[in-house]
């Protein structure tokens, strides 16, 4: 069966053999190649299905909102790279479809935004970074640094949202409200994945 790990193992094995590298260096190269391939596959799937359902920009906004915050805040993980690709694509595209076909008023978008950002700051401050068994974070310094960068990323999102709102007020372009909703949904998904309920529900999704 087609397995991403096997392909990475073969590539890193070949590189290590040709360059006479030891096992440690081989495992680091394998890890790097896996990170790259997994990232490319996830983005490509979001682009393909986003294109099919005509929500490519929305799906990419959601996907990047989740992933950028995820890198410093951590969160629940799938049990295999294939399941990860499926969960990531389905969640991004379905949330993009919701944002496309839902009609929200400007005041509703502002109200929802305030609630989401207050919850996000609170949950990130309380829980981030959420580590995993495969990559435990033991150092207190590193935990502090990751928490700080999670809060910084949240603040960048808030700035983007405020700029988006100001642009909407000037241009009255409804697409801007849609992009706002995409950021909200991506943020909600990532924040939810930090909580215990998120671990429980996403864990069940992973077992389907």
């Amino acid at each position: 069966m087609f397995k991403i790990e096997n392909i990475c193992e073969k590539i890193s094995g070949y590189i290590a053999q040709e360059l006479n590298l030891d096992d440690d260096k081989k495992s680091v190269i394998n890890y790097g190649i896996f990170a790259f391939i997994q990232m490319v596959i996830c983005i490509a799937l979001v682009i393909i299905f986003g294109f099919i359902f005509n929500v490519i920009i929305e799906a990419l906004i959601i996907s990047f909102t989740i992933s950028i915050l995820r890198k410093s805040s951590g969160g629940v993980h799938a049990s295999s790279p294939e399941r990860c690709a499926v969960i990531g694509t389905v969640s991004s595209v379905s949330m993009a479809l919701i944002s496309k076909y839902i009609n929200v008023s400007f005041s509703f978008a502002i109200l929802v935004g305030i609630i989401i950002f207050i919850c996000s700051y609170y949950i990130v401050y309380k829980l981030a970074p959420v580590d995993s068994i495969a990559k435990p974070i033991k150092s207190i310094e590193k935990r502090k640094r990751l928490k700080k960068s999670s809060i910084t990323i949240l603040s960048v999102y808030l700035t983007v949202v405020v700029i988006n709102i100001l642009c909407y007020l000037v241009m009255k372009n409804f697409s801007l409200l849609r992009y706002l909703l995409c950021i909200y949904m991506g943020l909600l998904w990532q924040i939810f994945s930090l909580t215990k309920s998120g671990h429980l529900i996403l864990g069940k999704l992973d077992n389907l």
Binding site: V28, I29, G32, I33, S67, K71, H77, R83, A85, D131
Partner: peptide, 28 residues
Amino acid sequence: VATIATLLASVVSTSACFFCHYQPEEPK
């Protein structure tokens, strides 16, 4: 390729997790 992969691995190791919803075991 080896240099870029090593660089990428170091970037991932300094963050909380991978870009996606899957985290493989980190090299020792």
